[in-house]
Design a protein around this nucleic acid. Sequence first.
DNA 1: GATGAATGAGCATTCATTCAT
DNA 2: CATGAATGAATGCTCATTCAT
Lengths: 201, 201, 201, 201
Amino acid sequence: MSRADDSQKRRREILAAALHCFHAHGYEKTTLADIRDRAGASIGSIYHHFGGKEQIFAALYLDAIAKAQSFNLRALRRARTLEQAVHGLVRSYLQWVNTHRELAGFVLTMRRAEFMQDAEEDLERINRKFRKELDDWLAQYDDGRLAGIAPDILFALLIGPSEEFARRWLRGKTTTALRRAANSLAEAAWLSLSGLGGRGR
Amino acid sequence: MSRADDSQKRRREILAAALHCFHAHGYEKTTLADIRDRAGASIGSIYHHFGGKEQIFAALYLDAIAKAQSFNLRALRRARTLEQAVHGLVRSYLQWVNTHRELAGFVLTMRRAEFMQDAEEDLERINRKFRKELDDWLAQYDDGRLAGIAPDILFALLIGPSEEFARRWLRGKTTTALRRAANSLAEAAWLSLSGLGGRGR
Amino acid sequence: MSRADDSQKRRREILAAALHCFHAHGYEKTTLADIRDRAGASIGSIYHHFGGKEQIFAALYLDAIAKAQSFNLRALRRARTLEQAVHGLVRSYLQWVNTHRELAGFVLTMRRAEFMQDAEEDLERINRKFRKELDDWLAQYDDGRLAGIAPDILFALLIGPSEEFARRWLRGKTTTALRRAANSLAEAAWLSLSGLGGRGR
Amino acid sequence: MSRADDSQKRRREILAAALHCFHAHGYEKTTLADIRDRAGASIGSIYHHFGGKEQIFAALYLDAIAKAQSFNLRALRRARTLEQAVHGLVRSYLQWVNTHRELAGFVLTMRRAEFMQDAEEDLERINRKFRKELDDWLAQYDDGRLAGIAPDILFALLIGPSEEFARRWLRGKTTTALRRAANSLAEAAWLSLSGLGGRGR
DNA sequence: GATGAATGAGCATTCATTCAT
DNA sequence: CATGAATGAATGCTCATTCAT
């Protein structure tokens, strides 16, 4: 393994350790000593690779959002009708939660703090890219069914219930199995969106 | 004003100051000095009344949940049909968010930490009471329309979109007015719930 | 019971509570809240009767020393020979330890702090009185047997072993019964003192 | 000088500063700021090396006991008769007090607190080792002269007077010179022990 | 006399960050 | 690149003492 590979490996070890600690105890309660112990790296090494606690958080956060969006976009691209798109997005969101529990819990719990503004423009760029692709898809496939729904309402109906369910599911506070819930939540999202948009609202 | 009244007043001042600080900067970043300055009380007085930062948080959290639930229950009691109940709960939730923005932001943002487990039983008691009244109402008015929907799904559909919208609205990230959104979200909740339950699922 | 009696009773309750706390946890670790809880009095009342933590300590300390000395002097007065006096003092010291364990532990453990200097002159007066009576007794009964022994050595031999034993006994670190130990320690004190003084040293 | 040497040096500087402060003002009244100022180290450095005030105390206490015992054992090993051993131990104890006044004052004054129980097992181990060597020596050299004396009485007679004298000497409350006192106390210890044991008690 | 809320100086401890080796 | 000793500002909390009721 080359020097650069070693370096990348160390970086990933630190990120994985930080993810676990942030998720388990929160940003503030996590100390660099916690991360150091879990990563098996030295304080100095952590600083060498990231420059500080905030940057570790930002790297983690950006990475999580980017991966989740990219995962969801893959589902969108497969859809050929509006209903397929709604079903696909809800399902892919919950599938991502299922396969990346720590990352999902991290994103759903963490308060986006002020210091994130250093990385806020990266975040904005990512979000714009996602929204652009979503809009382009709708421009091609939407027959006007959803056009009347304000974007903030649309987003709330599309992802709100799944997010709420995921929050509780990750805390072990649910009884319904995730796969079964995905069916209901996907169908419900389509029911509310199509019903609401149907009347040209 | 009696001594006991003074004491209660001081307690409320501290709670109000703490609410503002926790909401504005988060639990960890809020220092007792912040609360003291805002409350116009001394450190000693704060400790005399609450015993510590964590207890202030717990008192605030319990109070917020209790007030929100009691507000929502009033809306439920007025309903005479399932549709009225769903509409009423969504609207009352958003109305509460509108009139208690700090408290709502506090509840929606704060991570329920480990130390809350000291007050967790109080929280459980409150939640049981709320759920009991909800179940009793449904037992009386539900004609079987919602019976087939698992409670965790039902809750997610009822409140998930409104919560998601409220989160963004409180951060100033929405364009739709709250009252207008309430109409759409109430109707959407009913669409998804009645549609999902309609088929005896 | 008269008002003055009530007051005295309250005073004694506070002193008893303070003795227990000081003995159990030490002066610094004992808080006025501890004493208040144990005495069943209010903070204000404690201040009314004593004026502060230090004064409680001083009152307790002076009282303990005075009582112990008075108890030992009674034994001295009964003696008619040097040997009787040595035996009597050792035994009476250990008997006092036995019957006033908390008080004895308190005196043996407490560091006479700087603030005691406020009460230091009272302490000096008490000690002078004790020493005076001891000297007077020796002037009458000593045939020169102990005259050659320096007072600080004499005191160390008379009371040192008993004090050391008492320290361990109070901590439960001894196996010999106190009464049995008193016999040995009294005899040993006489052996060392008479032996040392015998040769006109 | 290597990094490890520097580290050890810093550790010793902190211990020396702490010894002085604890001895001069007591454990509770000594602040970490006092120790920091005297040691010329930073607060962080103190915590890096010891982890807290209590651990500094424990390290100091264990070290003091260990050194004193080792010093006394050297005297014991030189003795070839019981009388030599008693004289040797009393003299070596007082000599140690003379050459390590702060350490001796520290050990004689400090209240062994609850938190010491963390280090209590180390203390027990040290004490067992000391007692073992003492017993072994007696098994070899005692002709039965001391066999009848209970260990707690023996210890009290051997060291009690010297300890009592040392306490007062360290506070400047004695008139007899230490060396002269050592003669008397050594002889007195032998007088009481040989006299008491002589009759097979 | 009794009460207990209010006060605030003082303290141990934490922890991100730096930097010499 | 790795290491970990050193730093010190920041902070939650304690507790003796005061005083209005």
